[in-house]
Simulated assay, not measured.
Amino acid sequence: MEFENILVETKGRIQYITINRENKLNALNKFTLCELHEALTAAFKSSSVGGIIITGAGSKAFVAGADISEFADLDVKGGTELARNGQSIVFDVIANGNKPVIAAINGFALGGGLELAMACHIRIASENAKMGLPEVTLGLIPGYGGTQRLTQLVGRGKALELILTADMLTAADALNIGLVNHVVFQDDLLPKAEEMMNKILSRAPLALASAIKSVNDFNTASINGFETEIQEFGKCFGTRDFKEGVAAFMEKRKAEFKGE
């Protein structure tokens, strides 16, 4: 599948998706979001892909935000549709995906870029990365899930501070408040993401999917996350991977999971 604004490469069971608009600091326009949707949907359906790493081209930006030039002529209806469509075709697809997604944040992650990273299940940042939600400086608020996911990650008070001040965080600050999981030297960013993903992919694939679903249902309106956990826990007992995991434990050997 050929794309114009993203690069897709598969190494082993890891699929790399790189936003490739370096001269625009990898800003997300409508076309890029559509391409991301196609690539992500295909990756989640593919039996050969175990997990996804998302990053940005170059060394300056992961994604420096949405393409603001597309906002100028929108009215209330257009703005509402923009946010709803973006959330449904990309950000929620990532967050609710049945395979792990790691954001390798290699520079600026601002506005929609930080929202993209927050939709991923794990975030690793290079030491030069800077993050923030500057939308209020444009007379807007985050529209791709930022108000909700930032609050879940760092708490209500800190989320409000960051959104209302529009301040940028260094990678070290982001690590300190729990916005990212790890900070590494820039040259170590993708190797660290690969190392973590390969460790994850050594685990049982169906159990990974159940864990993601259960964690996602934490504090979700009208959904009892504890009940989700109970149901997903029970489903695991019906998998061949569970039988393999128990057998490997009893036989003191490494399990060979098949995702069945």
Rank of each mutant, 00 (worst) to 15 (best):
N216M: 03
D67N: 15
F249G: 10
V49W: 09
C120P: 03
D187L: 10
S126H: 05
F91M: 04
S47Q: 11
V136M: 07
F31S: 12
E194P: 02
F233W: 12
N29A: 13
K99R: 12
K60F: 12
A57P: 00
A103T: 06
A204N: 06
S202I: 08
V180C: 07
G145Q: 02
T41W: 02
I122P: 04
V76E: 13
L179G: 00
S88I: 12
L33M: 06
P100I: 00
N26E: 04
Q186M: 11
G259V: 07
F44R: 10
G178I: 04
V183W: 01
G86M: 04
E260G: 03
V93S: 08
R240C: 12
S69N: 11
A172N: 14
T137C: 03
D241Q: 01
K60M: 11
A104H: 05
D241G: 02
T18P: 00
R84I: 09
E256I: 12
G238M: 08
L36R: 02
T165Q: 13
I230K: 07
L179V: 00
I105N: 02
D67G: 02
C236P: 06
K30D: 15
N5Y: 08
A95W: 01
L179Q: 03
V76M: 07
G238T: 05
L150E: 06
F237V: 09
L138T: 12
R156V: 06
L162H: 02
E195W: 15
V215Y: 05
I68Y: 09
R123A: 03
A125S: 08
T151G: 06
G132Q: 02
A247Y: 12
G113Q: 04
G50P: 09
